[in-house]
Design a protein around this nucleic acid. Structure first.
Lengths: 147, 147
DNA sequence: GTGCTTGCAAAGTTTTTGCATCGCT
DNA sequence: AGCGATGCAAAAACTTTGCAAGCAC
């Protein structure tokens, strides 16, 4: 069972404020998506969200969840990250961080943007290309799977 | 019109040799996939390949092309690269290089693996995670789209 | 009240799978 | 000849879209 702590409660309201400030409407499905994202505080695929919302706030259509995610992404409330073969995952936008994804077990590791700085700088100089480190995960193999 | 030059011809035969050496069979569809990859010498999505092969070597089933690509990938003849929302693209494996993909125009830029070396090293040290730089593109924005 | 959102259901896109047949080695 | 590869067609996985009804502001 999902229990909202005082902390997540205030976090949720803070995000509601941000949505209003960005010109978004606080509809039921939007609250549900934000609620699950705040509560789980993990990286969830659209499918994860659909399943979890179906348990917690039944009656919301999958298509609506896709649309809410798209809207919140545009409003800058959430971000999505591409991770190879598996579908993109979503998370609340917070202090920018990039991701490592293990090709074998799918484990997701958060890393600071700063680790990209040298690569980003080199690429900018050499190719006049601005890297968006948070938009795609770096793939590889985690220690456990490298056995 | 597609014309096989002496150069691509030998390149093709060289790859045929590599396929045999790796234990792969040189079937019609396999030759077709290699032929298109050598001839175009670009980064093609599975769909690009299906369309191009349908023009050049009609009668090959899409599912077969997916299977051939999977096999050649396992044999180490081709590599696929994930690039955000758009489908993965395939290319012949050659001197290792990574890719930048523009989120706006889709342009693909090849960059040397070496640009990853510092990031890879840092990540290895800090998270015991081995980066595979060629398996996912770095997303961002190219000069033309950054207007 | 107005215009953005939703639910439903249908269609789209991309990739995978089952199975009998075929063909490379 | 043997065993993997192929073609076909159906299914799967994941998203998107059209439209009438509903709801936030």
């Amino acid at each position: 069972m999902v229990v909202a702590s005082a902390t997540t409660r205030s976090r949720e309201e803070q995000i509601h404020g941000a949505i209003r400030a960005a010109g978004g409407r606080l509809t039921g499905p939007t609250r549900a998506v934000v609620g699950v994202l705040v509560e789980s505080d993990r990286h969830l695929t659209a499918d994860d969200l659909i399943a979890e919302i179906d348990r917690t706030y039944p009656g919301i259509a999958p298509s609506t969840i896709y649309r809410v995610l798209m809207r919140l992404d545009e409003l800058g409330i959430v971000e999505h990250v591409h991770s190879g073969t598996s579908p993109a995952f979503y998370h609340l936008r917070e202090r920018g961080h990039a991701h490592l994804v293990c090709n074998e077990c799918g484990r997701i590791i958060d890393i600071p943007d700063s680790m990209f700085s040298q690569l980003a700088h080199t690429v900018e100089q050499a190719y006049d290309f601005t890297v968006e480190p948070r938009h795609a995960a770096i793939l590889g193999r985690c220690a456990a799977c490298r056995s």
